[in-house]
Amino acid sequence: MAIIQLKNIDFAYRKNEPVLKDVNLNVPEGSIYGFLGPNGAGKSTTLRLILALMKPKAGTISLFGEDINSTYPSYLKRVGSLIESASLYGHLSATDNLKIAAKYFNTAQQQIPLILEKVKLSHVGKKKTKNFSTGMKQRLGLAMSLLHDPKLLILDEPTNGLDPNGIIELRQILKALNEDGKTILLSSHILSEVEKIVDHLGIINNGAIVFEGSLETLQELRGKNIEVKIKVSDVEKAIQVLGDYKLKNIEDKSFMMALSDSSLLPEIAKKLVANNIDIYELSPQSNDLENIFLNVTQNS
């Protein structure tokens, strides 16, 4: 069952400048869903629409199987969120910030020390948050989103400002939360940051979803397709010889070539040599998820 379902969502801040175009998204219950896309692709806007911070121009958004228009604002009881940087009152302590969140969510204040411990901020509970580092602020933001024990967690670029240790810690926290049964929707513009924990992915580019599926599906794409960089003595002649293949990034001495199977490589080399074209380099490009992500977003 999809815990979040977006159907044909359109959104624009100004007329004739669409930010989201016919976005469809299905976040399975119990998953860690990575929502990826370059900066400005529409990730934060999509998350804000899910939280009813903005209204779509068209389409429907359902959470927990119900249209959010009919369940607003009570559906937010079951949602914890951290959108970009944490919303903290700098003149108040971490504990006071959590007390405010507890009042909004009708949560017992006894939870505060426990949640501070969970995000490893117990020792600074009384410190004013304006003196916190960026990483501490993000962790406190996460604590505020977890305080009411939500079923669904929506995190927009939560690793922003975190050092490598902080990122690893956050991953561990998120994994543990997922094991506790929470669904996590996590946005990022860096695939390598999320690929270690997500099991489902949605990739958005220029306001449109260009891939959605499980991590396995994306990994299958990695297995099939490869890209080869070929450096030759005569690029124009090589283009004529390899006219049947898909070539790109054509430069003076080199070009890139997409192949569906690596077994085609020897045949290509033979063809070029048979036509008196010298080969200086023939190198398959690393085809990790990062490259697939780039390919998907650049080709869309």
């Binding site: 939280l51 607003y72 969120s81 959108i83 009152y89 909004y104």
Partner: peptide, 17 residues
């Protein structure tokens, strides 16, 4: 205070209208 701390986005994503 609310504008400065980006508090609106948090307050408006709580179960309060």
């Amino acid at each position: 205070i609310e504008n400065h701390s980006l508090g609106w986005k948090f307050a408006y994503s709580t179960p309060r209208s």
